[in-house]
Design a protein around this nucleic acid. Structure first.
Lengths: 265, 265
DNA sequence: GACAACGCTG
DNA sequence: CAGCGTTGTC
């Protein structure tokens, strides 16, 4: 089974690139999208159903929005934190950033973690609170799951977990995406029992999933690895490959992110 | 000598269409553009100079803007009413709607007449005042010119001069572009001694230069003839053809207007 | 740098 | 329906 995560930065603008990618990657069973930036009514479902996929969408206009494009139907699909946490989360579940479903006894959680803007902003605080809520949410999913848990969480985490996941980690504490506070908040999530499956196969640096549009850093491979698949132990053991496909980032008018694919035996 | 008028509705968006049109119409000596929608600093001059044309631009951001693209250098180029009327025109010369120059002893005046919005608007009043100012402006040009005057005024006049210039003239008094007041204001201009050269060669209706994007009227040829070449008597006598080229309107992402070409012996 | 929305104009 | 500019976001 192959699962891909890809922040497409508008599914409508990138529609042809996404469908072309699916056509050239028929072995991919599930594509998890982030930043679809479109309300459900305007999501280009037909483009995917015509190719034989099932679509599960949880969208919002302009910002955020996630979707899952699956060869097989998913079961137990749920949107947002509230469906699982069953309490009022205030502002933490207003934005559409998280969708989950089950395929072949594996629960997939596809998410778009808040970016955080700047360290002194309310958005940064929101990001930390969101990650803590994610921890609580995943704890329940883990408790609900049969042992051993087979859960995969993937998406754009907007955090680089290690210094080798950043092209220049020197001033990492001054900007969002790699501060200690963000890493600790994410680590608390991973401590529930999730492992970065890319590192099962690749220990070297220089492998990134996102390159800023502004600095033109893709040409010089000045990027960040912020898109991940984190797997529970049992699933991690079954993983046989995890790769980053940088080809879509080379196309004209690309997303700033590129797909990350994991294969599970 | 062939002269073309074309409201391109943004010269940057339409640049390739415009240069392609020039390439396929090498016999055109002068192309008069309206609604270039760009300040002079950002006008894509190089695209025209590379093709061997001289450019004369009088631009404005977002709205209006006129330009002349000429095989031969133009002489005595002037922008706006004020250069000729030499008095303070208040708001009537703030918008960049008029440029003039001389080629082969023929004075060309290229203009974009205000649209007028709706009958009860200040813009409608502005349109009528603008046309009266145009009359005063042309009177001076005529007085300055050697007898017999060889003046051609062309552009988007935003007025249909006759009922056969409108696909459905029934309710023409309720909307802008063919009310009696607009026609009278334009007629006062033409009474200085200008004639609609298209009608020298074609008397039938159904010939238009503009089709509204909104109503999709191009498919059913529901348009308006609002782009003209008006010529002084001496020049009118020398005209040997005047045609509307609807091909550019058939292209993807077209301007809502299409070129009108006049040929003078 | 790129995307989407909104307001304005035609 | 299509253009531009502005704002907000990342």
């Amino acid at each position: 089974m192959q699962i891909t995560t890809w922040n497409v930065n508008s599914v409508r603008t990138r529609l042809e690139q996404v469908t072309n990618w699916l056509k050239t990657h028929p072995e991919v069973d599930l594509l998890c999208l982030q930043e679809t930036k479109v309300i459900d009514a305007d999501f280009p479902q037909a483009a995917f159903t015509e190719l034989g996929y099932h679509t599960y969408i949880y969208g919002q206009k302009s910002y955020n929005g996630v979707a899952m494009i699956s060869r097989q139907p998913l079961s137990d699909v749920q949107m947002g934190f509230t469906a699982v946490l069953e309490r009022d989360l205030g502002d933490l579940d207003e934005q559409r950033r998280l969708i989950t479903g089950v395929i072949d006894q594996v629960r997939i959680v596809n998410m778009y973690v808040p970016n955080g803007s700047s360290l002194d902003s309310d958005k940064y605080d929101y990001k930390l609170r969101w990650l803590e809520t994610l921890r609580q949410y995943l704890k329940i999913l883990l408790d609900q799951d049969d042992e051993p848990s087979q859960i995969l969480i993937c998406g754009d985490f907007n955090v680089a977990v290690e210094d080798i996941d950043i092209h220049n980690p020197a001033k990492r504490e001054t900007k969002v995406m790699a501060t200690d506070a963000e890493r600790e908040a994410l680590q608390a999530v991973l401590d529930l029992g999730f492992k970065d499956v890319f590192r099962k196969f690749t220990q070297s640096g220089g492998h990134y999933s996102w390159w800023d549009y502004r600095t033109g850093g893709f040409q010089r491979n000045q990027g960040w690895r912020i898109d991940y698949h984190f797997l529970t132990e049992a699933l991690y053991d079954r993983a046989i490959a995890c790769t980053i496909d940088i080809e879509p980032r080379k196309l004209p008018q690309p997303s700033d992110h590129t797909p990350v694919i994991v294969e599970i035996s």
